[in-house]
Design a protein around this nucleic acid. Structure first.
Lengths: 271, 271
DNA sequence: CTATATAGTGAACGACGTTCACAGTCAATC
DNA sequence: GATTGACTGTGAACGTCGTTCACTATATAG
């Protein structure tokens, strides 16, 4: 909404349209622009490189100017987190089994978090209750409770999947440690080191350790989600356990239970 | 390696044991003392309050002096992480079912992490391969593979439980956000806020949200662990499958196992 | 045209990690 | 016993950070 005060400037000098505000110039600062630039810094150089001075420099402004639009760096963190979480699309397709819905959401959440390196740490450390975070929570809770989990259980299941996803995204693939593992040589070195461990003291690590540290992240994440869903499914009833590998394109299972138990849960106070 | 140069000092003067260093005096700095003081700062004021200058002040020393014993704050982080992980007792009781072993270990890990506020974030962000972290990995992997999970699966299961535990500990109960939730008034406020959400946009959050944010942490952690174990059990097969593959490990490995300095040397190598 | 609100400036403050020339101390050597 | 030399700790500095504050420029209202 902050667009067009350009008219005033135009009327002032007919001859010379200053190269102006069109794309980069003197466009006035707004909170949105500050947050957007913060996101740009994070995407480009990671959250640990986010400094007030860097943002100010990119905006062609002196550091102190930012404090007209943002109370503190802490508040900026909250705004940034909300903006990032808003990038998770929260529309769901109710025609699809619960595990597929929740799985797709978790995958989107992980993708968004890993596109903003270092943001997961902030998210976990602050855990703000913001509009976007509520939308995410709703998107998780709806299919879980529609699947038949009573309210309390649905909330626990949500936190389980959410904590796992954020926790996973924290081991961020652009961190120096993970980056080094991308290099085949260091990977070989790590393998060799792990295998060289004394077999009487670290037998399992020596044997399987390489999978635990160097395996493909996608596979690890999806496998974890599958295990998690199997556990939730078992909780849901001894019915059928869907083969979880292909949950993204599964056949519809049973629909029409949406809005089962909404009324009940409002009865229980806090435990 | 750094222990006992005291012998030399003793032999030097038979008559007079200088009142000295007994408790506080001029005792020389060592890497261990620096790390220990760092742990003390973290336990007392959290990891975000850990500064070189704070450690130096507590040790009655000028900041630059620390750099004689520690290359950088980064290296100090690695040393601190190893020291913290070493506090997780890794001796297992092979007589109990795998889920009990893994569960007990995960609970100990969480307890240790939450006793050092803010440490989980460092652990996740750095994920060092240190002596103590190898010991923890071994303690997780052994019962899992002994339970019949083939090596690859055991490694994935270990990472799943480990990532969940560390991720959970990250939402640290001493953080300002969680601390505020301890206060009944703010809790009521949060409840009221959640229930006041537009029921057409956030029905599930309005109904069950309070469990997701304000429920007891212990209950949440244990419930998550249970769900997780159910998932792993399902993966293990409806009946226990005694896979002959990895059973060498279910023999008690090393009962008198003091978790010693064995692999310590290699820690210095990777800093 | 003047008065007022406001967005941005420039300079500073204190805390941080880190470096470096120097001084103090002790063991071994000449 | 004096000299050397290796270390350990000192004091002061550098550059960066978040944040504050008195100021100036600007744009609108009366």
């Amino acid at each position: 909404m902050a667009g067009q005060q350009a008219g005033g400037a135009d009327s002032r000098s007919l001859w010379f349209n200053p190269p102006d505000d069109r794309e980069s110039g003197r466009r006035p600062l707004t909170r949105e622009r500050v947050v957007a630039e913060a996101l740009a810094v994070i995407s480009a150089e990671g959250a640990q490189a986010l400094s007030m001075r860097a943002i100010a420099a990119r905006l062609g402004v002196v550091p102190g100017a930012l404090y007209r639009h943002v109370r503190s760096k802490e508040q900026l963190y909250d705004l940034v987190l909300d903006a990032v979480l808003a990038e998770v699309g929260c529309q769901a397709d109710p025609g699809v089994p619960w595990a597929a819905q929740v799985g797709a959401l978790a995958r989107r959440l992980r993708a968004v978090l890993e596109n903003h390196p270092g943001i997961a740490a902030l998210l976990k450390a602050r855990d703000p209750v913001s509009p976007a975070s509520l939308a995410v929570a709703e998107a998780f809770l709806a299919p879980l409770s529609a699947a038949g989990l009573p309210g309390h259980r649905a909330a626990l299941a949500f936190r389980l999947v959410y904590d796992y996803t954020v926790g996973f995204a924290l081991g961020d693939p652009t961190s120096p440690a993970e980056q080094r593992l991308r290099d085949t040589a260091t990977r070989r070195e790590l393998h060799a080191f792990l295998r060289s461990l004394p077999a009487d003291r670290f037998p399992a690590v020596a044997a399987y350790g390489t999978h635990a540290w160097a395996d493909d992240r996608d596979q690890r994440f999806n496998s974890g989600l599958d295990t998690l869903f199997r556990g939730l499914q078992a909780e849901l009833g001894p019915a059928r356990v869907p083969s979880a590998a292909a949950l993204q394109v599964d056949e519809p299972q049973d629909r029409g239970r949406r809005q089962g138990r909404t009324a009940k849960a409002s009865a229980d106070g806090l435990g």
